[in-house]
C-alpha cells in the first residue's frame, strides 16, 4: 500500500477518480460565491482571496453574509471560523486515512473540506481514498476559483444586488447548506440537528434587536452547546457519527 508502484497505471480511469471529477463539478456554484462576495461589499480581489485561501464554501458565505448586512467584521471572522471548525475534525480522520507525506501534507490540509472528505471516506481502500480525495480536491479548487472569478466580475457589473435578488440568494444558500445536515443521507442523530436548528433560529430572532449586527448569529450558535451537552451520557448519542460530512455542501 505504500509507494507509487501500488497505484494503478491509469489511475484516472478508476471509479474513485470518476467520482472525484463528478463531485468536483459541484464547485460550479463558486459563481454564487463570487456574486455574493461582491454584493456584500468585498472587492473582486478580496472575494478571490477568500476562495483561494479560506476555501470553504459555508464559511465564505457566512463571512459575506455578516459583512453584507452591515455586521461587525470581528463577528464575520468569528462566524466563518466557527463554521470551519468541522474541517479540523475531517483533518483528524483524513490524516490517518491518507497519511500524506512531505509537500502533500499542506496540500491535503488545504483541500480538507466537506466534499473531499465525503469522497475519501466513501472509498473501500486507502489507495482509492487517496485518488478520490486528491482528484476531488484539485478539481474543486480549480472549478471553485475560476467560477468565483466569473461570479465576482459579473456581480461587479450588475449594480444594485437587491434588484437581482442576490440578498434572497444568500438566504437560500444557507437553507441549501443546512438542508442535508437536517434531512439528508449524511444527517446524523435523530432529533439533535432539528432541535439545534429550531433553537438557533429562535435565539437569533430574539437577540437580534438587542445585539450589534452579526453578533446575533453567535448567540444562535450557542444552541449547539445546549443541545450537544444535553445529550451527554445518552446511549444513542454515542452511536452517532458526529464528524461525518454531508455530500454536496462546502
Amino acid at each position: 500500500m505504500t509507494g507509487a508502484t501500488a497505484y494503478p497505471r491509469q489511475w484516472w480511469k478508476t471509479p474513485a477518480a470518476r467520482e472525484g471529477l463528478a463531485v468536483g463539478l459541484v464547485g460550479l456554484y463558486g459563481v454564487s460565491a463570487g456574486a455574493l462576495g461582491v454584493a456584500a461589499g468585498l472587492s473582486v480581489a478580496q472575494t478571490m482571496l477568500t476562495s483561494l485561501l479560506l476555501f470553504s464554501g459555508g464559511s465564505q458565505f457566512a463571512f459575506y453574509g455578516v459583512i453584507g448586512t452591515g455586521g461587525n467584521p470581528l463577528a464575520a471572522v468569528a462566524t466563518s471560523t466557527l463554521l470551519g471548525l468541522r474541517n479540523g475534525f475531517y483533518g483528524l480522520q483524513l490524516s490517518r486515512l491518507l497519511e500524506p507525506k512531505g509537500w502533500l501534507r499542506p496540500v491535503a490540509a488545504h483541500l480538507t473540506i466537506d466534499e473531499t472528505t465525503a469522497v475519501a471516506l466513501a472509498q473501500e481502500t486507502p489507495q482509492r481514498s487517496r485518488i478520490g480525495f486528491y482528484v476531488t480536491g484539485v478539481m474543486l479548487f480549480v472549478v471553485w476559483n475560476s467560477t468565483t472569478l466569473v461570479g465576482a466580475l459579473a456581480g461587479e457589473a450588475m449594480g444594485d444586488p437587491r434588484a437581482y435578488g442576490l440578498d434572497a440568494a444568500a438566504a437560500a444558500a444557507f437553507v441549501a447548506l443546512v438542508w442535508p445536515r437536517l434531512f439528508g443521507r449524511g444527517a446524523h442523530g435523530r432529533t439533535g440537528p432539528i432541535a439545534t436548528a429550531a433553537l438557533a433560529m429562535i435565539l437569533t430572532l430574539v437577540s437580534a434587536p438587542f445585539t450589534p449586527t452579526g453578533v446575533e448569529v453567535l448567540v444562535g450558535a450557542t444552541a449547539a452547546l445546549v443541545v450537544g451537552l444535553r445529550d451527554r451520557g445518552r446511549p444513542d448519542a454515542a452511536a452517532t457519527e458526529p464528524t461525518e460530512p454531508t455530500e454536496a455542501t462546502a
Binding site: 457566512a62 444557507f174 445536515r181 449547539a224 458526529p242
Partner: peptide, 17 residues
Amino acid sequence: RVVPLLTVALLSALVVT
C-alpha cells in the same frame, strides 16, 4: 458532538439574519 451541531446552529442562524 457539539462541532457538527455548531455547523447546523450557525447555518440556521444565518438563514434568519
